[in-house]
Computed example of a mutant assay.
Amino acid sequence: MSVVASTRPSQAACNFPEQGAGRVTQVIDVRTIRLADGAEIRLAGVEPAPDDISASVALPQLVDRDVTLHGDADSPDRYGRQSAFVFIDAAAPSIQTQLLASGAVLASGTVSERNCAAELAATEAAARGAKRGIWARDGVIKNAAIPGDILAQLGRFVVVEGRVLSVREAGSTTYLNFGRRWTRDFAVTISRRMMPAFSGAGVALKSLERRRVLVRGWVESRGGPRIEARHVGQIEVVGD
């Protein structure tokens, strides 16, 4: 699978201002590359599927290629990595978009810019519909009704689909409950500090009751499996 040979038009929605450039010298892992100047670049907007190596197979093709970095900021994270959208050719989509289109990675749901977030989600959905890459197999999307299957992915990034049974607020946290056994079933937690973001996006959390949703994020254990929604894009309504 190639991630550098696309001739499709540039995906302008994620073409943020340029924040740097360099030559790729190493692929550190499925979402991190190193440039010749020693900078570590984290691929923004995507995450690897659990136990999948598709992206790690594709990314070595970037070694010895010149890239430009685009983003809304160039501040490093706590590990010293710069998060950016990576481009080899301004006339081609970002590496992230190409990876999503080939079914090599998952959209993270953490991009706040709406047009870019929508583009990444749509690209992933197209790959899923065409059963490309990771989507050719079963079980990539976990069933919210089977909490044990989700809990088996503790500490990993997963996508979960299910129907929200209830929305409850307790203290400073709102819970989207997918089962009646609150201490054992799957739930999504949303802290009070995230409420303005959901309101600003026109999402009334209470309106999610009885809706079928896709949730993506890192699995935690608090009795039952939990995913904390720190970004609006982690929750997607897919049906009633």
Rank of each mutant, 00 (worst) to 15 (best):
R216V: 08
Y79V: 04
M1S: 13
R210W: 01
L100Q: 07
R128T: 05
T183S: 14
I33P: 01
Y79F: 15
S166H: 04
L154H: 15
R31Y: 03
E209W: 00
V105M: 12
G171H: 07
Q19R: 15
D66M: 03
P48I: 08
V164E: 05
G80Y: 08
R216T: 09
A170Y: 11
E124Y: 06
A187C: 10
F198D: 05
L69S: 03
G45E: 04
V215W: 02
A90D: 14
W218D: 04
E47L: 01
D138R: 14
P50A: 09
L43D: 02
I28N: 09
V203I: 15
G20Y: 10
L59K: 04
E119A: 13
T97S: 13
L151G: 11
E220L: 13
A204L: 09
G20F: 05
N115M: 03
S172D: 15
S6W: 08
P50C: 07
G71E: 04
V4H: 06
W135C: 07
M1H: 13
G133N: 03
Q98Y: 00
A229S: 13
R216W: 10
R42V: 02
V159Q: 10
D138K: 12
L99W: 01
R23C: 07
A197W: 00
D77Y: 09
V164K: 02
F186L: 08
I150E: 03
M195D: 07
V167R: 04
L176M: 12
V111A: 02
G155L: 11
S10D: 11
V167A: 12
V213N: 04
Q26T: 10
A170S: 12
A5V: 10
H231W: 12
R230N: 13
S172V: 10
V57N: 09
A117I: 01
S166F: 00
V46M: 12
R226S: 01
A5W: 06
R181A: 14
Q19L: 10
A49I: 02
A39E: 11
E169W: 01
R156C: 00
L43R: 01
E47G: 00
R210C: 00
R34G: 01
G200V: 07
L214R: 14
A12H: 07
S172G: 10
G179P: 05
Q96S: 10
R132L: 15
E40C: 08
A21H: 12
T189W: 06
G20H: 07
E161D: 11
E220P: 00
T173S: 10
F85V: 06
L208I: 07
D66H: 14
S2H: 11
S112I: 09
I95K: 06
L205V: 09
F198I: 04
A136K: 14
P147V: 06
T173P: 01
